[in-house]
Amino acid sequence: MSPTILRLQAKTFNMTKAFPFYFFRWMHDHYAKLPLHSHDFIELVFVWNGSATHIFNSRQFGRLEYKIYPGDIFIISPGEEHTYHLDPGEKVEIINMLFYPEMLESSLLFESYQAERELMDFLYVQPFLQKEARFSSILKLDAIAAEEVMTLVAKIEKEYTAQQKGYQSLVKLLLTELVLRLGRFYSERPRLISERLLVVQGGTKDKLNRVLGYMEHHYNTDFSVEQLAEMASCSERQFARLFKQATGTTVINYLHNLRIKRAQKMLSRTNEKIAAIGMEVGFHDISFFNRIFKRIVGMSPKEYQAGLSRGGELEGRTAD
C-alpha cells in the first residue's frame, strides 16, 4: 500500500499572490517524523546545521536517498515528493524559503545578457537534470561561499520577521540576489558530461534546458515564442525546430500539456470551480480551456471532476 502523501499549498503558509513567499527555520530530530509531502511552490533548502538523509521520490527515477550536511543547498520543484530521515542521535537545522517564480525578476531571463541568464540555471535547469547529474550538482559551499550565503539569508530572515515598511520589496531584491549568487556558484562547480534535461537528447543546445525549466515554473503566465527564442539565444525559426526536435511537439502543445496536467491535479485535490481552475493554470477563456482539456484528456473537466467525486477509475488520459 502506497504511503499517504501530504499535499501542501501556498495558502497553508498564508502566501498571497501579491507576496508569494514564506521563510522558516526547521529543527528536526529522530523522534519528530516528517511525512512524505509535496507542494505547489518552489522550495529552496539550505542546510544550516547538523545532518540528515534526504528522501526524494522522483517520477523519473523512483526513490532516491542521499546525505545532506551544513552548506548544502538544493531546490525542490512544485509537485516533487520528499521528506527527511534522521538516525538516533542525529539532528538537523534547515532553512526553508518557499516562493513562486513571480518573486524573481523575469527580465533576468528575457532582457539580460547571456551570462546573467546562465546565473538563473540553478533555479530553472538544476531540478530537471538526469539522476546522476542532479544529485551531484547539489551545491556544497565552501566556508567563504557559505558565509556569503548565510549573510544574505540572515538579511532575508530579518526583513521577513520584522516586516517594516518596504520589507516585501527588499525581500524580493535579496531573494533575487541570493538566487543569482547561487547561480554563480552553480556555474563554477565541476560539471558532468551527462548533465542535461531528460527530454533533451543528442546535440540539442544546452540553452533549451533553461527554456524548458522556465516553462515548467511559469506555465500559467503569458509569454511569447519570441521571448522563449530570445532566452535560448536563437531565432524564432531555429528555436521552433530545436524545440520540436527535443520534445517531439510544438511550444504551444507542450504548454497546453503542462497546463492541463496541473488542472488535473487541481481537480483531484481542490473544490474550486472549473472556471477558476482554468484561469489559474493560464487559460483566460473557459470554452477554450474545456476544448483543450477534452482534446488531451479525452473528457471534459466536468466529466473528469464527476468521475473523481464518484471515486471510480477514470478512463481519461493523463497529460504528458
Rank of each mutant, 00 (worst) to 15 (best):
65 E>V: 02
239 F>K: 00
218 H>N: 09
211 V>W: 04
18 A>S: 06
46 F>I: 12
87 D>P: 00
123 L>K: 05
206 D>N: 11
157 E>W: 04
283 F>G: 00
12 T>S: 10
123 L>E: 00
301 P>H: 08
286 I>R: 12
129 L>E: 02
265 K>Y: 15
239 F>A: 02
305 Q>H: 07
163 Q>F: 05
208 L>N: 05
227 Q>L: 14
178 L>Q: 01
129 L>I: 01
256 H>T: 06
164 Q>F: 04
210 R>V: 09
241 R>Y: 12
245 Q>N: 09
119 L>M: 07
13 F>W: 08
304 Y>L: 12
314 L>W: 06
167 Y>T: 01
262 R>C: 07
149 V>N: 07
72 D>H: 14
261 K>W: 07
21 F>Y: 11
210 R>L: 13
135 F>A: 01
234 C>Q: 06
205 K>S: 15
7 R>M: 15
9 Q>M: 04
286 I>T: 05
286 I>P: 01
157 E>F: 07
194 S>Y: 09
282 G>I: 07
122 F>L: 07
74 F>S: 00
170 L>H: 02
140 K>L: 03
201 Q>E: 13
288 F>N: 09
255 L>P: 00
157 E>Y: 14
70 P>W: 14
14 N>M: 06
212 L>I: 09
314 L>R: 03
66 Y>T: 04
159 E>C: 06
80 E>M: 11
207 K>Y: 13
108 L>G: 01
198 L>M: 14
216 E>G: 01
198 L>A: 10
35 P>K: 08
241 R>T: 12
116 E>I: 08
155 K>A: 11
54 H>M: 04
250 T>W: 13
305 Q>D: 13
188 E>R: 10
222 D>E: 12
157 E>Q: 10
106 S>D: 06
209 N>M: 14
169 S>D: 04
218 H>W: 06
139 L>V: 09
145 A>G: 00
16 T>C: 04
126 Q>H: 09
245 Q>S: 12
275 A>V: 13
206 D>R: 14
265 K>M: 15
231 M>V: 05
22 Y>C: 12
51 S>E: 03
252 I>M: 14
197 L>Q: 00
80 E>N: 07
27 M>F: 10
275 A>R: 06
251 V>W: 12
24 F>R: 15
147 E>W: 05
52 A>P: 00
25 R>L: 13
59 R>E: 15
23 F>H: 10
68 I>Q: 02
97 M>I: 15
174 L>Y: 02
62 G>W: 06
236 E>Q: 07
76 I>Y: 09
101 P>C: 12
87 D>E: 15
227 Q>D: 10
144 I>A: 15
268 S>Y: 13
92 V>D: 01
105 E>G: 00
276 A>T: 09
310 R>I: 02
100 Y>E: 05
6 L>C: 05
274 I>M: 07
132 E>K: 03
80 E>Q: 15
15 M>D: 02
248 G>L: 07
210 R>Y: 10
124 Y>F: 14
238 Q>D: 15
201 Q>H: 12
196 R>H: 08
27 M>G: 01
113 Y>F: 15
83 T>D: 07
93 E>I: 14
291 R>G: 04
91 K>M: 02
109 L>D: 00
313 E>F: 13
118 E>N: 02
253 N>S: 14
131 K>N: 03
49 N>E: 14
305 Q>K: 06
168 Q>E: 13
275 A>K: 12
186 Y>I: 08
222 D>G: 03
196 R>K: 12
316 G>K: 11
156 I>Q: 04
206 D>T: 04
105 E>K: 05
116 E>V: 10
80 E>K: 09
